[in-house]
Simulated assay, not measured.
Amino acid sequence: MPVRTLDHVNIRTPDVPGTTAFFRDLLGLDARPAPGADHIDRGCWIHDPAGHPIIHIGPADAAYPSDAMHPFAPARGGGAVHHVALLCDDLVDMLDRLNHASRAVTRRDYPEAGLIQIFVQEANDILLELNFRKEAG
């Protein structure tokens, strides 16, 4: 059975509200309370425009089922994960949002691939690659 797609990324952080705000306010994604959480500031799922949960944000001190076999050690940045890539629309709007929030970005244009990439770090210093693809004409 092949892998069909990436299901989600989990970010465990001491700043759930700040991390949630980055994805909701700057990237324009929908934030909803995670199952068992009574508010998005205590744990949330970030949903893509189709309503799929793609990023799970949880408190650093929460107990996860995997902790018994792989204990969690709080850290900043992505550790062994270099970056998380998101396919995006509306490059101008995204750059305006990031600029307004004083976020440093690195832009790479790849016209031969019909691709523009924006690299930005979210609230926990995890590197995000925001991809903007031109439709083949």
Rank of each mutant, 00 (worst) to 15 (best):
L91M: 10
R32I: 15
G18C: 02
A37P: 06
D61A: 14
H83M: 01
M1K: 09
I11L: 15
P65N: 06
P2E: 07
F72R: 09
T13F: 03
P53G: 14
T106S: 14
H47C: 14
F22R: 03
A21Y: 01
A31D: 05
D90T: 04
T20I: 00
R103S: 04
R133E: 13
R4N: 01
L98C: 02
A62E: 09
D38V: 08
R76L: 11
G114W: 02
H70P: 00
P74V: 10
R12V: 01
S102D: 15
T19G: 01
H82Y: 15
P49V: 01
P17N: 07
T13R: 10
A136R: 12
A113F: 13
G58Q: 11
E135D: 12
I55Q: 02
P65M: 05
I126C: 12
H83C: 01
A63W: 03
F132G: 09
V84Q: 00
Q117S: 14
I46M: 08
P35K: 10
P49R: 02
G79N: 04
D96Q: 13
H70Q: 15
F132A: 09
G43Q: 07
P33A: 11
H70Y: 12
F22A: 02
R4M: 00
N124I: 02
F119C: 08
V81D: 04
F22K: 03
I118Q: 08
R24D: 08
I116M: 07
Q117L: 12
L115P: 06
T13V: 11
P53Y: 05
D93F: 01
V92G: 00
R24N: 06
P111H: 13
L98D: 00
A68S: 07
D25Y: 03
P65C: 06
A73K: 10
Y64W: 14
H70W: 12
H52F: 09
N99H: 08
A101T: 04
F23I: 02
L27I: 10
L130A: 05
L87I: 02
A50D: 12
I40M: 02
Y64L: 15
T106W: 04
L86Q: 02
G18F: 00
N10H: 03
Y110L: 15
G43M: 06
H39L: 03
S66Y: 09
F22Q: 04
E129W: 08
E122N: 03
R24Y: 04
L26C: 03
I11W: 11
L29W: 12
D7M: 03
L127I: 08
D89C: 05
A101I: 05
A123V: 00
I46P: 07
F132Y: 14
A123Y: 01
R103V: 10
R76A: 07
F132E: 08
Q121S: 13
N10T: 14
P35C: 10
P2K: 11
L127H: 06
H47F: 03
D67I: 13
P59Y: 00
R4H: 01
T5Q: 13
G137S: 09
P17M: 06
H56G: 09
V92H: 05
L86T: 01
G51M: 02
A63L: 13
H8D: 01
R42C: 05
L95K: 14
G28F: 13
R76W: 04
T13C: 10
H8Q: 06
D7I: 03
L6N: 00
I46A: 07
R103Q: 14
V84D: 01
Q117D: 08
I118S: 07
L87W: 00
